[in-house]
């Protein structure tokens, strides 16, 4: 079951969006459209569906339209043409067609969000920030308290409840941002480069914590990132964007093994293949002696297996040779 569906979604900023849209349909690129109409092409004909419980990462360089697309899910950006549908209980609701009350219900209980710059209210305490979504929904302070405390514990901030958020470090502030998003118990979570403003060590720790939280309460997460390692670490699937268009969607391995065009190939060329590729990606036609390696064995373990043999068979057919792997790694 899908939780989010983008259906030929186009987002333009500016007045003469109709004309700009027709130019985009002819395949014109963003700078030329801006020149001709004054409109900025945010996203064009983007189609993507996110299944329930899945983490999909929208990835691309800055300005590729990934945040623009993300913000259409909860109506922060208006969709110019096409549709964005979001699951509310048993039905899919079209966000562009939603009236004010429906949009509010969606934001209160079905879709929550984490921001790159945290977006915390600096004059409030940690607990008051975490309870924001519940407060806006009209929950009484007493009924908020229990859920806020649970979230405080979940992100490891118990004991900080009454401190002003301004006193916290960046990493802790984003933990508050995470707790605020989890507190509404919305099944869909939008994350707009949530860890980009943090230093690498904290970033990596928060990524792990996010994966832990995700194991406990399976949510649908649409995650925006410009960091390839982050995308490959978190994403079940990745959608690569360029100039407002989605150029390839697939798992990390699919993208690495078969990049759709030069942009994607260039993008993934800096990635460490040790973290992503598995035995089946390296297999060639042929046969070898010995016990076969499992098809999903990570490359690191394949290498240690090849230290003892020049060639190993792969379960389900094919062979991995030492020479082929060395050639592949040298090329990357």
């Amino acid at each position: 079951m899908n939780a989010i569906e983008f259906d030929n979604c186009s987002i333009l900023f500016g007045k003469d969006s109709k004309h700009a849209l027709s130019l985009a349909d002819e395949g014109m690129e963003r700078p030329a459209i801006k020149e001709a109409t004054g409109c900025v092409l945010g996203a064009h004909n983007a189609s993507l569906s996110v299944a329930e419980g899945e983490i999909v990462v929208l990835m691309g360089l800055s300005g590729s339209g990934k945040s623009t697309l993300l913000r259409a899910v909860n109506g922060l950006n208006d969709v110019t043409r096409g549709d964005v549908r979001v699951r509310m209980g048993s039905r899919m609701v079209s966000v562009p067609d939603a009236d004010r009350a429906c949009l509010r219900a969606l934001r209160l209980g079905h879709v929550s969000m984490v921001f790159q710059q945290f977006g915390l209210l600096p004059w409030r305490s940690v607990a008051e920030n975490i309870g924001l979504g519940l407060e806006l929904a009209g929950a009484t302070p007493a009924s908020r308290r229990a859920r806020v405390d649970a979230q405080l514990a979940a992100v490891g901030l118990d004991g900080w409840a009454d401190r002003p958020v301004a006193e916290l470090s960046g990493g802790m502030q984003q933990r508050v941002g995470l707790a605020r998003a989890f507190a509404t118990e919305a099944p869909i979570l939008l994350m707009d480069e949530p860890f980009s403003a943090l230093d690498p060590l904290i970033r990596s720790r928060l990524q792990d914590e996010l994966l832990d939280l995700q194991r406990e309460s399976r949510r649908t997460i649409l995650f925006v990132s410009h960091d390839l390692d982050e995308a490959f670490k978190l994403g079940n699937r990745i959608a690569l964007m360029d100039g407002g268009r989605i150029v390839q969607t697939g798992t990390a391995r699919e993208i690495l093994a078969r990049p759709a065009n030069d942009y994607v190939a260039d993008f993934v060329s800096h990635l460490n293949p040790l973290d992503v590729l598995t035995a089946s990606d390296l297999a060639e036609a042929g046969k070898a002696d010995g016990s076969p390696l499992p098809a999903d064995m990570p490359l690191k373990q394949v290498l240690s297996a090849l230290a003892d043999n020049t060639a190993c068979p792969v379960a389900g057919g094919g062979v991995i040779t030492r020479d082929a792997v060395l050639r592949r790694l040298a090329a990357a």
Partner: peptide, 9 residues
């Protein structure tokens, strides 16, 4: 935006 995203009127 943060408050709007969490459903503020």
């Amino acid at each position: 935006e943060a408050a709007t995203a969490f459903g503020a009127t």
